[in-house]
Design a protein around this nucleic acid. Structure first.
Length: 986
DNA sequence: ACAGAAGCTTA
DNA sequence: GTAAGCTTCTGTT
């Protein structure tokens, strides 16, 4: 086993009991043999190994073993004879299943592991330790709390019955303590099932609270006298010894002298005939069919096999029955050839015997069937649609792709929908295609389409079915449209977001074309290929239905294949929780924010536009007077030629294309030297910028029906994890100048409502203080002090009380510079000082805050070694050029990687807040709704009467957003206020 | 009709 | 010095 490998350890004994009790209907084979637990077990193994109906575990393991208890007597009985003493014998109909489950394990080509004197849990602990030491990761397939003590950075758990991952946050959520304190918690609470005594009167809540207070069990027992509650104190003092014994009983032994090593657990591909032989015997028909399909085995070619059924009295002893050989299945055509290898070699697909090939299994499935755009189906009648819906249900998943009249989901009308169930099998359902050769009135709706309402009535139950996973590329678009048609799509996966989590920062994008090219080596049909381009282009609803089918169904097919390839990679790279906690849940939240929109006052903008036009016209005349001719002031080329060419102003510099630079900074400098013209040009630019980008453009975005402005948020556009906003961009509405701020007064509510703006104060600097562990900064934030003044005071030995504003300004620039991955060149530019001086500032800063230099060096070294950096929540951002031999490209990547950890962590924090916000407001009975996000600010709309109640809820969610995943050493602080427009609320 | 550069807006 | 998106101009297709 090596780094990157992933070991699955199935708690076989735990599973048997749980499945037996959890699966209510008593499943029996036709001869009366009870097989409910065996059936559940086989389905679980198959899913875990490679079924396309992926589970939440989402991991492709490289090593796999099933662990069993050997007998009920273990070393713990010597420690405490009563241990597990009150266990009753297993139920009658469960007993034969113990052996069957071991045989099932072997039929899956998986190792069965058990050892006398040890429980399965001890073996699991031992193998998890061995895997960790080898650099690999482990997932324990169990939901037993006794195993939760193993959870850590490289060890996770997965509950196969609830399809849920259990990591550090889940343990904390459930038990109130981190995994490493689980033994102490169990020592206090005891366990009535296993007869672990514990301390009477102490349950999980009290135990967690005590451990929080005292830190650990030993400290608690030593200082038990300090406990205020009389009964509790006395009970703990009286039962201290029981607690110590309990701890020994619940502590798993991770150094069992195991006979098999991890290398014996290398996962082998399933042997189709062998497995099918067993499944057929068990009469698990639907699993048999699935396995046959996946392994390319003909079910008819395989004979059922004999199985050994244990006597009831053997259940407690060593599992003799499982040792008996299973009669090997032999394919009919191969009867003359004895032996497993020969028989299976011809009947299975070419799935090899190495772990990497198992990962390749998915890739192979995704690429095996050639993409043939002429092979797709077109669904034109209700019967066909019903059949496809049933097929998707049976598959448990479907990729889909919506076709609509606009790329803006708030304006788009549905035209059709494509669906794919397995690679190469996809269909398009046209609802609203029109004849392309229509007259001025437009073509009529074509015949032979299922009417929109009927089609949606059939699709809605599927799209909302909890047991069918819907897969899409850029799902938010489809979600907004479907929501407008009354359909709430769930559950879902988004291939674009999976790619973003896997590969943010790499040189390939996350759009369908880029992904199809990279992973499938395929270029899908382009929209232009079917609609035409330019003046002769037509709407998708006028595209010939055959062409539309080829295009839309191909997209669904490609999406499904991408999902098959990408989803397992998430787990292989330990990124499942980033995807599931930071990305996927935000999609519906953003969809709702976009749908709500924000009210913008057309009249205010119109009045402002007039004022700006007047101001600009006046300046224009004055500028013409000064330069003596009527050039296009908006043309930097013409302007540069006049200013530095004809008029000969000093200090001209050139841009990289050889043009004169006319940047604001340069013009400001000239203005400061007393030149009249540059000032007027700067002012003119400001006015025309405000006019064209904001006052003139925004009214065009007011939706005709809702009368509100609906921005679009991109989840996968930035490298760092920030969102971006477009059409219109509401994340760059002016705020710095008084003129610009007037734009914000046009973002309004009606009289009975208010806008609430809540923003994080200095979040990135706080993240820096936390991750770089800077004592002075932590203290300053804890005290609520002026962080820039503190920095200045440390650097220049000036007391904070008498801080000159210029000194503070420089310290502030340095603080920001650190976040941006400081350089002397950049700081010098920012402060308009010589580079030498900037360089000295940085040197001095690092002397005062050596932890920050360490942090920067560590980040660079990490990025160079791994090619990526991570936020504190595990988001990965790649810097493929960090090792470039081009020094400036390399330096740029270094600065970006330093910034990415901070900006990305801040972005993760506000994402977490947004994901939790709706529920928190609901629970508080508040009607406030999130409208906008501007990186460190959230804007809400609420009824006036609820403003006072809303602000504390919002603040609480935002300030605690890092918890419980990360407990920050620096408090987060949120400022919030309410008003009737965005300017006053901010 | 589109793409890139320059410039300006935000966090 | 980080991260974005939009408008205008300009040159090319």
């Amino acid at each position: 086993m090596k780094k990157g490998d992933h070991l699955f350890l199935v708690d076989g004994s735990g599973y048997i009991f749980r499945a037996y009790h959890a699966l209510p209907p008593l499943t029996r084979k036709s001869d009366g043999l009870p097989v409910g637990a065996v059936s559940g077990f086989c389905n679980m193994l198959w899913k875990l190994m490679l079924d396309a109906r992926n589970t939440d575990v989402g991991i492709v393991p490289t090593h796999f073993a099933v662990i069993f208890d050997y007998s009920s007597k273990t070393f713990r009985n010597e420690l405490y004879p009563e241990y597990k003493a009150n266990r009753s014998a297993p139920p009658e109909d469960l007993i034969p299943q113990f052996g069957l489950i071991r045989q099932a394990t072997r039929a899956f080509n998986l190792p069965c592991v058990e050892m006398e004197g040890f429980e399965a849990d001890d073996l699991i602990a031992t193998y998890a330790r061995l895997a960790r030491e080898a650099g690999g990761d482990t997932t324990v397939i169990s939901s037993d709390k006794d195993l939760m003590q193993l959870v850590g950075a490289t060890v996770g758990m997965y509950d196969p019955m609830k399809d849920r991952q259990i990591g550090i946050p889940e343990v904390i959520e459930k038990w109130g303590v981190p995994p490493e304190k689980m033994v102490d918690l169990q020592a206090l609470t005891g366990d009535s099932v296993d007869n672990v005594p514990g301390v009477p009167g102490i349950g999980p809540k009290t135990a967690a609270q005590l451990l929080e207070q005292f830190g650990d069990l030993d400290t608690l027992l030593a200082r038990a006298g300090e406990i205020k509650q009389d009964k509790r104190r006395e009970s703990i003092i009286a039962n201290a010894e029981k607690a110590r014994i309990s701890r020994q009983l619940v502590t798993l032994k991770d150094d069992v002298p195991v006979s098999e090593g991890l290398d014996d657990f290398v996962l082998h591909a399933p042997d189709g005939p062998k497995l099918i032989g067993f499944l057929k015997t068990m009469e698990f028909t639907s699993l048999t069919r699935r396995v046959a399909e996946a392994t390319g085995t003909e079910v008819g070619d395989v004979q059922a096999v004999a199985v050994t059924v244990e006597r009831a009295d053997a259940a407690h002893g060593p599992d003799v029955g499982s040792g008996a050989a299973i009669v090997q299945p032999v394919s009919r055509s191969q009867t003359s050839e004895a032996g497993e290898t020969a028989a299976s070699g011809t009947a299975t697909t070419k799935v090899g015997d190495t772990p990497s090939l198992l990962s390749a299994f998915r890739l192979e499935r995704a690429t095996a069937a050639k993409i043939d755009t002429t092979a797709y189906h077109c669904i034109r009648d209700v019967a066909a649609l019903k059949a496809w819906v049933a097929e998707a249900r049976e598959a448990g998943l479907a990729a889909f792709d919506v076709r609509a009249t606009s790329s803006d989901p708030m304006q788009a009308e549905l035209i059709g929908l494509a669906i794919a169930t397995t690679p190469g099998r996809a269909a398009y359902i046209p609802f609203a295609h029109k004849s392309g050769n229509g007259d001025l009135l437009g073509g009529g709706v074509l015949e032979n389409q299922i009417p929109l309402r009927d089609a949606l009535a059939l699709l809605k139950p599927l799209l909302e079915d909890k047991s069918v996973l819907k897969i899409a590329q850029n799902l938010k678009y489809d979600l907004v449209i479907m929501s407008r048609y009354g359909i709430d799509v769930a559950p879902f996966d988004d291939t674009m977001l999976i790619s973003y989590v896997l590969d943010a920062g790499t040189h390939h994008g996350h759009g369908m074309d880029a992904l199809a090219e990279k992973w499938l080596g395929h270029t899908p049909l382009q929209l232009k290929d079917v609609t035409g381009s330019g003046k002769s282009s037509v709407g998708f609803d006028q595209v010939d239905i055959d062409k539309a089918t080829a295009h839309a169904a191909e997209d669904a097919d490609v999406t499904l294949r991408l999902w098959l390839v990408l989803k397992p990679r998430l787990a292989a790279k330990g990124l499942v929780s980033v995807y599931e906690r930071l990305e996927r849940p935000l999609v519906p939240v953003l969809a709702r924010m976009e749908q709500r929109g924000i009210s913008v006052d057309r009249q205010i903008l119109s009045r402002l536009s007039g004022e700006l036009a007047q101001g600009a016209a006046r300046l224009e005349e004055e500028i013409y007077q000064l330069i003596g001719e009527r050039i296009n002031i908006g043309s930097p080329k013409q302007l540069g030629d006049i200013l530095f060419g004809r008029m000969g102003l000093p200090g001209g510099s050139k841009t990289k294309t050889g043009q004169w630079s006319t940047s604001a900074q340069l013009l400001e400098d000239l203005a400061a030297e007393g030149h009249e013209l540059p000032r007027k040009i700067v002012d003119w630019r400001q006015l025309t910028k405000l006019k064209s980008t904001y006052t003139d453009a925004l009214p065009g975005f007011i939706h005709p029906d809702t009368k509100r402005v609906h921005t679009s948020y991109a989840l996968a556009a930035t490298t760092t994890g920030r969102l971006s906003s477009s059409d219109p961009n509401l994340q760059n509405i002016p705020v710095r100048t008084t003129e610009g701020r007037k734009i914000r007064t046009a973002f309004i509510t009606d009289r009975s409502h208010r806008l609430v703006s809540a923003d994080y104060s200095q979040i990135e600097l706080r993240v820096l203080a936390h991750v770089a562990e800077i004592p002075q900064l932590r203290q300053a934030f804890a005290d609520g002090a002026d962080i820039h003044a503190i920095t200045a005071s440390e650097m220049f030995n000036v007391p904070v009380e008498a801080m000159p504003s210029e000194i503070r300004r420089r310290a502030k620039a340095i603080n920001f510079g650190i976040i941006y991955g400081i350089s002397a060149f950049g700081l010098a530019n920012q402060l308009s000082i010589p580079r030498e001086e900037a360089s000295n500032y940085i040197k001095k800063y690092f002397e005062r805050f050596p932890g920050i230099r360490d942090y920067i060096e560590e980040t660079k070294a990490y990025a160079r070694e791994h090619g990526f950096v991570e936020t504190i929540f595990g988001r990965r951002i790649h810097y493929p050029d960090i090792r470039s031999s081009n020094p400036s490209l390399r330096a740029f990547n270094e600065r970006a990687s330093i910034n990415a950890r901070l900006q990305g962590t801040a972005a993760d924090i506000i994402r977490r807040a947004m994901i939790r916000m709706e529920e928190a407001l609901d629970k508080a009975g508040l009607s406030a709704r999130m409208l906008l996000q501007v990186h460190d600010e959230l804007i809400f709309e609420t009824v006036e009467a609820e403003v006072e109640a809303t602000i504390p809820v919002v603040r609480h969610v935002m300030e605690n957003a890092a918890m419980p995943a990360v407990s920050m050493s620096v408090p987060l602080h949120v400022d919030a206020r309410a008003a009737n427009n965005w300017d006053e609320a901010h």
